[in-house]
Design a protein around this nucleic acid. Structure first.
Length: 245
DNA sequence: TACCAGGTCCTCG
DNA sequence: CGAGGACATGGT
């Protein structure tokens, strides 16, 4: 079995299934995505919104913002496309960078409205690569946000790379810490079965593990990947900050 | 108190 | 290209 699969199974054993993406329902934020047969348009839009709002921001801050949007019935393409930008910015204040993000949400909604009659389903009903190119062409949507939307909202198989992925897999010795987004994504695509459920679960586990053990300042005691890690940080108290990578 | 958090865009060299 | 800065809140 490939080493990368061993890492996946070790994470599953340690944390169990994560069941991402977190979605809200009736204005409440649920920590887990309940097993539904298919996302509604509203739920898909909420994932897209969450993907944009969580750019370099903690998810708890994003949850507060999404609850505000829910309260104001703004998880809706038509309404988002029309709302005053400064008003939207205040509603999503908790998610940080609120002026930028308000602009990005409105641009995203307007794009759907102008090109797909506001239908996310229509937009997602495109080949993965075309969808990805279109997402990347939008202002404010870079590779991670695009891939999060493709994987968690459109449910198509692309591996999401984020700061956590780089941190964990460089520490494991799979790559350099400054590897490019594209290169690291290629590593996962070449080594894993092309299965959106696998990509979904794996990435969610990476986030879980990065928050629990493989933090910026790693806590290597009892780390479930300890035996597979090249950097055990056994003497972490003696390390300088720059050695944490 | 300072640092951190599921990035992206812009500007410069 | 790539490095560096701007964007901003809330939790620890």
């Amino acid at each position: 079995m490939k080493k990368i699969n061993q890492v996946y199974h070790a994470l599953i054993d340690a944390y169990g299934k994560q069941g991402w993406w977190p979605v809200t329902d009736k204005g409440e934020v649920f920590p887990e995505y309940k097993k539904r047969k298919a996302f509604s348009e509203k739920q898909m839009l909420e994932v897209c919104i969450g993907a944009i709002l969580t750019q370099n921001t903690s998810w708890t801050n994003v949850e507060k913002a999404i609850m505000q949007l829910n309260k104001n019935k703004l998880i809706n393409v038509n309404k988002l496309a029309k709302i005053d930008q400064s008003k939207l910015a205040q509603l999503i204040r908790s998610s940080g960078y609120f002026n930028q993000k308000a602009e990005r949400l409105i641009l995203f909604a307007k794009y759907l409205l102008n090109n797909y009659s506001g239908s996310i389903n229509k937009f997602f009903n495109k080949p993965l690569q075309n969808l990805r190119q279109e997402l990347l062409s939008m202002h404010g949507i870079g590779p991670e946000t695009a891939d999060s939307i493709i994987l968690y909202a459109a449910k198509k198989p692309v591996f999401v790379i984020d700061a956590y992925t780089k941190r964990i897999f460089s520490r494991l010795g799979f790559c350099e810490k400054d590897i490019s987004y594209h290169e690291l994504q290629k590593m996962f695509h070449e080594r894993l079965d092309c299965d959106f459920k696998l990509f979904n679960e794996f990435h969610a586990l990476i986030v879980k593990h990065a928050k629990q053990y493989c933090k910026k300042k790693p806590e290597c005691n009892n780390c479930p990947l300890n035996s597979k890690c090249q950097k055990t940080y056994k003497h972490k108290n003696l390390l300088n900050k720059h050695d944490y990578t």
